[in-house]
């Protein structure tokens, strides 16, 4: 079998195993929807500017509509960064990675299987959140900006996958994985225009958030969702995300461990 065939097979078996843990599969999909409902209930009664022009707001939507884009971004980060870091740490501790390491399957083939599956789940989540948003929160699914939306998702999902794999090299064991992952991602989700719309773009915490990829991903997703004109691409933001993604790949290649780190 060709290496590509092997990699595709790896995706299929990863997918098979994923759905056979129904509790995990259910909450992977229910979690973002739950957040969408909670945040719109808490903060959904105002308007939020989603596309800023040089001097004035180009498009303002109800905050509940804003959350459809924000939670779509959140669900991609969860499906890739969070899920991969935790599940790979678990597989490493269980000795599953070491066993694979002893076979002729190339390392990238295994990683491709995991990442491609995470990206597929991310897409499925976006579709569910988008359909839910169109039905209940008057968030029209983008059509003119759809190419930008899809490319933003792919760049974001791939980059956050790489960062998740890189993170496993500092996770000491599977028990610690959720704590480490949440400590790295939750603060950014609050500061980066995802859980709470940014009120004051000049605040110090926004400047801080701009260093990290979550903020830029939220901006790129928002632009691709709501831009009233143009193709909705945010090249500069995508570049920042991609740089973080490449850094993730490099760190993962250098420091990834196939055996329990005890």
């Amino acid at each position: 079998m060709s290496d590509l065939g092997l990699a595709v097979r790896q995706v299929r078996f990863t997918n098979k195993a994923f759905w056979r843990n129904p509790a995990n599969a259910f909450f992977t999909f229910a979690f973002p929807l739950m957040f969408l409902v909670i945040f719109t209930a808490l903060f959904g009664n105002s308007d939020t500017c989603v596309v800023h022009g040089p001097t004035r707001c180009l498009r303002s939507v109800s905050t509940s509509t804003f959350y459809v884009s924000a939670i779509a971004a959140f669900s991609i980060i969860t499906a890739t960064y969070t899920n991969l870091a935790i599940s790979v740490s678990f597989q490493r501790d269980a000795g599953i990675l070491k066993r694979v390491r002893g076979t002729p399957l190339p390392a990238w083939g295994y990683m491709f299987g995991r990442i491609a599956h995470a990206i597929l789940v991310a897409f499925l989540l976006v579709i569910i959140v988008g359909a839910f948003g169109a039905a209940f929160y008057s968030a029209d699914i983008p059509s003119r900006t759809l190419p930008a939306y899809i490319i933003t998702i792919v760049v974001g999902a791939a980059s956050f996958s790489a960062m998740g794999l890189a993170l496993t090299s500092v996770i000491p064991n599977a028990d610690a994985a959720p704590a480490v992952v949440n400590a790295t991602i939750l603060p950014l989700l609050f500061l980066s225009d995802i859980f709470i719309p940014i009120q004051n773009p000049d605040a110090w915490y926004v400047k801080l958030a701009k260093v990290f990829p979550v903020y830029h991903f939220a901006q790129a997703m928002k632009a691709a969702y709501f831009s009233p004109a143009g193709n909705g691409f945010r090249g500069a933001d995508l570049l920042v995300i991609a740089i973080w993604g490449v850094a993730g790949v490099v760190l993962a290649v250098l420091f990834f461990s196939w055996e329990p780190r005890r």
């Binding site: 097979r9 994923f18 843990n21 066993r99």
Partner: peptide, 28 residues
């Protein structure tokens, strides 16, 4: 050309016996 049985086992818990063998044999 080699087969390895490690000291501790590590197999995906959600695949069946036949699927597990099928997955691994495709590497060879």
């Amino acid at each position: 050309r080699i087969g390895i049985v490690l000291q501790s086992t590590g197999i995906d818990p959600y695949l069946t016996v036949a699927e597990t063998i099928d997955l691994f044999r495709s590497y060879y």
